[in-house]
Design a protein around this nucleic acid. Structure first.
Lengths: 410, 410
DNA sequence: ACCTATTTTTCTGGGGGTTAGGTTTACCCG
DNA sequence: CGGGTAAACCTAACCCCCAGAAAAATAGGT
C-alpha cells in the first residue's frame, strides 16, 4: 500500500522547510527566533541552520544589539545564492519575473500573447522569449538560475508523464518536453492556482494557518487548498478545481463547455452577465474589456449616488459566491479562506460582508463559525511568486536538503 | 506555527498502525508477509510486532507450513484482548454491535427510536439501554470493553469542547457529557460518514488505495474523504459534508432547510421526487417508506418489461449523481470513489454506468480518467464497524502504541 | 586589567527510529 | 544424523529530536 515510507529523514526535511518558511517570513532572525517560530528546539535549529549555511542557502551577519550578553548572529536567506524565475502564462500575456533566492523581485518582463493562437509551439516560443528577455533585463546568465517555474492556465497533470490540459486552447493532453529543451535549466510546471496558494502559504495568511483555501477571482475562478501546510494535489495534481463545480445544474453556459459552473456566475464575465440580467440596458453591459468592466463596477458602487442595478448585481454575486464557498468550506472545512485576484482587489471590500453572511447561512453546522474569510495581502504577481517558490523548493530537493519532491516537474 | 511537531515517535506510531492495518486485512500473516504488505523492513516489523505482542494486541500461532525451512509463526489480532462496541444512532433506530478485538461481530442489538423524539435525554437514554442490551447479549461485562464508539447522525464538532449539531433534531450545539457518565467506558463520538470511511479504509477498498472518497447514498447522502490513509477531518471535524453541496441554486427544498442540495436530488426522497416530476401518476410515487420505494424501483428496473418512467428516473438520478460526484472529484482528485449505503445496494448496479459516463464528461481535465468508481464490498453495519474501529484506534492510543490521537472524544 | 553577569550558541548524552546484513533457529529430507 | 533452506533474530550503523551542561562573546563593575 504505502510505496513511499516516511523515515526520520523526512522529519529533518520538514524541519528544514519550516526553518526556511520562518526565515522567509521574518526576513532576518536569530537562531533563537527561529526556534520560537518553528517550535523546534534551539539545538535542532542550530544543526538545521548549519546544513543551510554549508549549502550557502542562508548567510550569517553578526550584529551586536548593544545590549548586554553575547551578541546575536542573525541569519537571512542568502539572496545571492542564485536567481529563481517565475513565469506566469496567462491568456493575454506571458510574464516572467526574476527573483533572488530570498524571493524578492529583481526584474520582470511582460510580453503580450495572441489570445487566439494556442499551438504548443507558439506558447513554448513565447515562454522562451519572455524568459530570455527577463534574464537579460536582470543582467543574469542562465548559469545563475537555480530553477524556473512555469504556471500554465490549465491543469497540469501527472498521469503517465506530465501532461497539460487547457480546454480553451484545445490542449487535451499536451506534453511539453520541448519547453525543457528551450529553457535549459531545471523546470517545474504547475497550475496558477497552486502557485497562488503557495505564495499565500509562504508570504501571506498561510504564515498563520496551515489549513486554508485560497480562492482566486478573475476572468476564471479557482481554488488552491492547503492542508497541514502542504498544497493538496490529489492523485493527478488536479485537486482544487472548484471553479467548475456546479452551482446550478443546466445553468449558464460556461466557457469550459459545461453548464452552471461557479465560474459562469462569479467570474468577471459572469458578473457582467448578472448585470445584463438585472438591467439589460445598463451602459456597463457594453464594456468589452473585463477588467475595465470590473473597475467601472467598483467605481459605480463607490459613487455617492448609489446605482440600484449595480448594487443588486453585487448582492447577487455575493450570494453566488457565498453559496459556492459554502460548498467548498463544507467539504474541506479549512481554518480560513483567503480571496485573491483582480476582481477581489476591485470589489472584495464590497463583496465581503454579503458573502460572509451568505456563507454563514449556508455552511453546515458550525463550520463557518470559526472560519476566517479575508482578502489576501499578497498582491502583485502572486502567480509568478508562487511558481518561483515551487521551483525553489525543487532546488532545495535537488541539493538534498528536502525530500518532499515537487510532484510536477518536466 | 506548528504546535504539534512530528518526531520519530510518530513514525513508529504510523508503522504500528500500518502493521495493524495489514494484519486486520489479512486476518493472519507472518512477519514477512507484513513486511511486504507495509513496505517496512522485516527488522522493523519484528520490533513493532514485539510491541503489539507485549500489549497482548496480537498473538502468535505457530503452524508449520509443510514446506522446507524454518516453519512460519503466523500472527493474528488477539481477538480475546477485549471487546469494542460500535453504536450506530440513526433516525429510526439505535444499533449497538459488540466486536472482538479483531473487529469481528460478536453480538448486536437494535432498538427502535421514536423519530419525533429528539431530546438529548431521550437519545442518551436510548444509547445507554441499547449498549447495555448488547453487552448482555454478548455476555460480556463492562470491564471487558476496551472502548465504545458512537456515531450520531449529524456533525460532531470540536470547537470549545465537543459539540453535536443535528439539524433535524434541532440540536444546534449540544454537549453530551451525560453520555460519558452513562456509558462509563472510554468513548468516542463521530459522524457516520467518517465511520463509514474508516470501515472502508480498514476493511474495504481502502486496503488498496490511501486516497479515496466514500459516498453514502441513503435517506441522506454524504461523503467521507480519505487522504494519505487518514480521514480528512478539517479544522472542526466537519469536513466531507458533500451532501449539502449545491447542485442547483434555488432548487429543491432540502430537509436541512436550504435549497438545491445534492441530497435533495439523490437522497431517496429526492429520487422519489424525481419520479413524481417524470410521472406524477406513477404508483410508486405513493409508497411511504423510503426503503420500500427504492426496493420497488430496483425491482421495476430489473423486470422484463421496462418501465419508461422508472428508466428515466434512474437516468436523471445518475446524471445528478455524476455531476455532483464530478464536483467532489474536481476538488479532491482522489484515486477512487466508493459508493455505499442502502440505495447503492439496491440501485448501484443500475446507476453505475450512467453515473460513470456523466462523471467522465463533467470532471475537469483528466482527473476522471484514472479514477476508479465502484460499489463497496463492505456491506453490513459499516457505520458500527467504522466507529468501533475509531474506538479501537483510540484504545491503541491510550495504551501508548499510537500517538495520533483520535480528535473527537468525549 | 580582571572578574561577573548575561545572553546566545554549541556540545553531549539519552531516547527513539529505520535498515542492511550476518546469525541463529527449526524444520524437511536424504 | 548431517545438509539444505527459509524464517526470525540480533547487531551495528546511521538518522532523527531534545534537555541540559558547557562554551563563547560581550557590557559593565571593581
Amino acid at each position: 500500500m504505502a510505496v513511499e515510507r516516511r523515515t526520520s529523514r523526512d522529519i529533518r526535511s520538514e524541519s528544514r522547510l519550516d526553518v526556511m518558511h520562518a526565515l522567509l517570513s521574518a526576513e532576518e532572525a536569530t537562531r533563537n527566533d527561529l526556534a520560537r517560530a518553528t517550535g523546534l528546539s534551539p539545538a535542532t535549529v542550530a544543526t538545521v541552520v548549519g546544513d543551510l549555511l554549508s549549502e550557502g542557502i542562508v548567510t550569517e551577519s553578526r550584529l551586536s544589539a548593544g545590549r548586554v550578553g553575547r551578541p546575536t548572529t542573525s541569519l537571512r536567506i542568502n539572496a545571492d545564492r542564485g536567481r529563481v524565475v517565475g513565469i506566469d502564462v496567462a491568456e493575454t500575456y506571458v510574464r516572467a519575473i526574476v527573483f533572488d533566492a530570498a524571493l524578492r523581485e529583481v526584474a520582470g518582463v511582460e510580453t503580450p500573447r495572441d489570445e487566439h493562437e494556442s499551438s504548443p509551439e507558439y506558447v513554448v516560443e513565447g515562454i522562451g522569449r519572455t524568459f530570455e528577455a527577463a534574464l537579460d533585463r536582470a543582467g543574469v546568465g542562465a548559469e545563475d538560475v537555480l530553477g524556473v517555474g512555469v504556471a500554465l492556465p490549465g491543469i497540469v497533470q501527472r498521469a503517465s508523464g506530465v501532461v497539460v490540459v487547457v480546454p480553451h486552447w484545445s490542449w487535451h493532453s499536451v506534453e511539453l518536453d520541448s519547453l525543457r529543451d528551450r529553457i535549459g535549466v531545471p523546470l517545474v510546471l504547475d497550475n496558477p492556482l497552486k502557485a497562488i496558494a503557495t505564495a499565500e502559504l509562504w508570504f501571506g495568511t498561510g504564515r498563520e494557518s496551515d489549513s486554508m483555501v485560497t480562492v482566486n477571482l478573475g476572468t476564471g475562478v479557482g481554488a488552491g487548498i492547503v492542508l497541514e501546510g502542504r498544497i493538496l494535489r490529489g492523485a493527478t495534481n488536479a485537486a482544487g478545481e472548484w471553479g467548475h463545480s456546479l452551482l446550478a445544474i443546466d445553468g449558464r453556459r460556461c466557457r469550459c463547455g459545461r453548464q452552471g459552473c461557479v465560474e459562469a456566475y462569479v467570474g468577471a464575465p459572469g458578473i457582467q452577465q448578472t448585470l445584463r440580467e438585472v438591467a439589460p440596458e445598463h451602459p456597463l453591459c457594453d464594456l468589452e474589456m473585463q477588467q475595465e468592466f470590473i473597475q467601472a463596477l467598483a467605481a459605480a458602487s463607490a459613487a455617492d449616488t448609489p446605482d440600484p442595478a449595480v448594487e443588486e448585481t453585487l448582492a447577487i454575486t455575493a450570494r453566488y459566491l457565498g453559496s459556492a464557498l459554502a460548498d467548498l468550506v463544507a467539504v474541506v472545512n479549512p481554518e480560513r479562506v483567503t480571496l485573491t485576484g483582480w476582481t477581489t482587489w476591485a470589489l472584495g471590500d464590497r463583496l465581503l460582508p454579503l458573502t460572509r453572511a451568505r456563507l454563514d447561512e449556508e455552511a453546515p453546522g458550525e463550520s463557518a463559525a470559526g472560519l476566517r474569510l479575508e482578502i489576501s495581502t499578497v498582491r502583485s504577481n502572486s502567480v509568478a511568486t508562487g511558481v518561483a517558490m515551487i521551483a525553489l523548493e525543487r532546488f532545495l530537493g535537488d541539493v538534498g536538503l528536502v525530500t518532499t519532491r515537487v510532484p510536477i516537474a518536466l
